[in-house]
Write a protein that binds this DNA or RNA. Structure first.
Length: 462
RNA sequence: UCCUCGGUAGCUCAAUGGUAGAGCAUUCGGCUGUUAACCGAAAUGUUGUAGGUUCAAGUCCUACCCGAGGAGCCA
């Protein structure tokens, strides 16, 4: 693999074989060609030097272009040229796959717009940017599992199909095997879902939280990491219809424990990227977002500020700054407010805690003041809300009261309520949109460019 | 879903209502231990779709489709 060659794992003078794809070819009429080959194992490609004495030099090597796949064998040598320390002096260059029509091969050795590359999502991993995103995304995912494993969390595989609109978190995608051309009807004329596959209405999950809470109330420390689905018609750079979410859940824990966990987790995965993907991060800092590296370093070197929602409102009122949306206690904070708190006021990540109950979900724990719930948002400079979490309501009577207040049918939540009947325990957790974390780390602007095949309204090609 | 901007060569973009162009990529030639090389030449178009106004539409008007940015919703 190219990464191990460039890392210096293999001594100069050794015979090596690499398998990969051609990025560019430059000929020298002195009788040799330079072939840049990449294989995805690291940011850099390696230069293969092919002399015209090779039997297939004229009829094959000189026809190589971007996208061709090759197997090259030769001696690893110190480079005579500038720009790379090592290169391969080819003894054989085997062409495995040609590019059928070089004229229309979309991935040219030049700058492409991300919009265009989205239209060729099957080929965009061959570009510098998307292979770098892919490695960073993988690094964040691996670091996530490592962090939770090292801290005694179990990964719980929560279901993707669900029969309850668990959290009320947005529009759901329906899952059904009913014949849409000929829907069975009840006497009342409604669609008869008792004849559907699961015998009731079913959907794609919007969150694994309620399910993972059940395992939390036995396994103590658990998390989910999987795809979630929202059928919202939102067309922004921050939303996907299908995205990956990380949701840890911690038993015998309160909101402060939750905030501690969020801080430790984010710092762990960001540090992993700086340690393990310096090559890709240098690329992002150079070509995508100048602050990609310094932002993470800054993030790691400061502890999170913590403040109550009420306190945050006071700060906003005293800001002496004109906000587009006026500041009042009880409002849901707009992104301009969140950004003021972390970017202007504190200049570091801020955890805002204890929000008004009316703007938060039913399962969040009611505080003693009767007005606020134990919810928290982690706000980060440059992005705003990156994590949302809460201490869960563990008291059955309080939970039922909240369900009633919000007009929810408590029978639907019968198993969730059982957790409060049988050995209930204070517990807390949070949710992190994985792609948003990848965006934050890489500095990529559009969330559709940090997931291999983005799903969004009117967009599910590939 | 709302607001704003956009859709012209493979890509990135020009073109006052009056002959559809450049750079890069591609192909060919030249030059060079080259570095998204350099020099020269060639080829490349149903101007998003459907209507309309006009002697004449890439350009103006209408509808629709697609894309981008912002807003709302949120992760």
């Amino acid at each position: 693999m190219i990464s191990s060659l460039l890392r210096g794992d293999i001594a100069v003078g050794t015979s090596v074989t690499i398998k990969g794809w051609v990025r560019t070819r430059r000929d020298s009429k002195a009788g040799l060609s330079f072939i840049q080959v990449h294989d995805g194992t690291c940011f850099d490609s390696i230069q293969v030097v092919a002399q015209n004495e090779l039997p297939n030099y004229a009829d094959e090597i000189q026809k190589l272009g971007a996208g061709c796949s090759v197997i090259c064998t030769g001696e690893l040598v110190a480079s005579q040229g500038k720009g790379q320390s090592m290169e391969i002096q080819a003894e054989t260059v085997e062409v495995v796959g040609w590019v059928e029509d070089p004229d229309t091969y979309p991935v040219q050795p030049k700058r492409h717009s991300f919009e265009f590359l989205r239209e060729v999502a099957h080929l965009r991993p061959r570009t510098n940017t998307f292979s770098a995103v892919t490695r960073v995304r993988n690094c964040l995912a691996q670091a996530t599992h490592r962090f939770f494993h090292e801290n005694s969390f179990y990964w719980i595989h929560t279901p993707i199909i669900t029969a309850s609109d668990a959290e009320g978190a947005g529009e759901l995608f329906r899952v059904s095997t009913l014949d849409m051309e000929n829907l069975p009807r009840t006497d009342a004329g409604k669609v008869d879902y008792s004849q559907d596959f699961f015998g009731k209405e079913s959907f794609m999950t919007v969150s694994g939280q309620l399910n993972v809470e059940t395992y939390c109330c036995s396994m103590s420390r658990v998390y989910t990491f999987g795809p979630t689905f929202r059928a919202e018609n939102s067309n922004t750079t921050r939303h996907l219809s299908e995205f990956w979410m990380i949701e840890p859940e911690l038993a015998f824990a309160d909101l402060n424990d939750d905030a501690d966990l969020a801080e430790a987790y984010l710092k762990y995965i960001f540090k992993a990227v700086l340690d393990e993907r310096a090559d890709d991060m240098a690329f992002f800092a150079k070509h995508v977002d100048k602050e990609a590296v310094s932002r993470l370093e800054n993030f790691l070197s400061h502890s999170f500020e913590r403040m109550d929602y009420t306190e945050a409102i006071t700060h906003l009122e005293k800001a002496g700054k004109k906000f587009e949306f006026p500041v009042t206690w009880g409002m849901d904070m707009q992104s301009e407010h969140e950004r003021y708190l972390c970017e202007d006021l504190c200049k570091r990540p801020v955890v805002v805690m204890n929000y008004p109950k009316d703007i938060k979900a039913f399962y969040m724990r009611m505080n003693d003041d009767g007005k606020t719930v134990a919810a928290m948002d982690v706000l980060a400079p440059g992005i705003g809300e990156i994590i949302g979490g809460s201490q869960r309501e563990e008291r059955l009577d309080m939970l039922d009261a909240r369900l009633a207040q919000m007009g929810l049918d408590k029978d639907i939540y019968w198993w969730y309520r059982d957790l409060r009947k049988y050995g209930t325990v204070p517990h807390a957790g949070f949710g992190l949109g994985f792609e948003r974390a990848v965006n934050y780390v890489t500095g990529m602007k559009n969330i559709r460019d940090v997931i291999p095949f983005p799903r969004a309204p009117k967009s599910a090609e590939f």
